[in-house]
Simulated scan of single mutants.
Amino acid sequence: MFKNKLITIMFIIIITLTLIGVVSFVVITYFTKDTTGAPSEPTIDEIVALTYDTTELTTNLLSNDFAKVQFRVQVDNKKALEEIEKRDFQLENIIIRELAELKASELQGSEAIGDLEETLKTRINELMENGEVVHVYTRRFIIQ
């Protein structure tokens, strides 16, 4: 192949060292990665640091009842938290509009509250530019 035996031997040594390096990298990467595949759950301190409390809102429902509610919105990063704090008026608007479309009977039970939380999460995420809402927690929920 090559005219000089020294060049052939050097070429074989370089290929051998490269293959050993690649195999070592693959083996180390394979055995040191997290086998669960899921990201670790945040600690309670991390959750609290990335949440925003809405003000307590009182609004009319479609059924002429009224609701007094407060939510805690968890976001995924600090920039999203800063953004959600600036968008507080839009947050309140979304909450009031969603509640105004519901009757008191549609807000009874934990499933109904969970549906409302998911709806709020989706609607708020439509506004977000820096990050996203991870979860909406209901803090206060009174219907009269």
Rank of each mutant, 00 (worst) to 15 (best):
T119E: 07
V134L: 04
F2W: 05
T51C: 13
N125M: 12
P39T: 06
K3S: 13
R140P: 10
E46D: 06
E85L: 04
K68C: 07
N93K: 08
E129D: 08
F71I: 03
V73T: 05
I28P: 11
K79N: 15
K68E: 02
T8R: 07
S105L: 14
V23H: 14
F11I: 10
N4I: 09
T58Y: 01
T29A: 04
A67R: 05
R72F: 14
F71E: 01
V22P: 10
T58A: 04
Y52H: 14
D88F: 05
T8F: 11
L57R: 05
E132V: 03
F31L: 03
T59I: 12
K86A: 06
T51I: 09
R87C: 04
D115I: 12
T55R: 00
T119I: 07
R87M: 07
G114V: 00
T55S: 15
F141M: 09
V22H: 02
E85M: 09
E106I: 08
L99E: 07
A38D: 00
K86M: 08
L19I: 06
A104F: 14
A38T: 14
I12S: 09
E132D: 04
V136N: 02
T8P: 04
Y52P: 07
D53Q: 04
V75Q: 07
L50F: 06
E92H: 09
S40G: 12
L127H: 02
L116N: 01
S63Y: 10
I28W: 08
K79W: 03
S110N: 13
F66Q: 09
L120A: 01
R140G: 11
I95D: 01
H135E: 11
N93E: 13
L57W: 12
D53P: 00
R140Q: 05
T43M: 02
L102H: 08
L61F: 10
E106K: 05
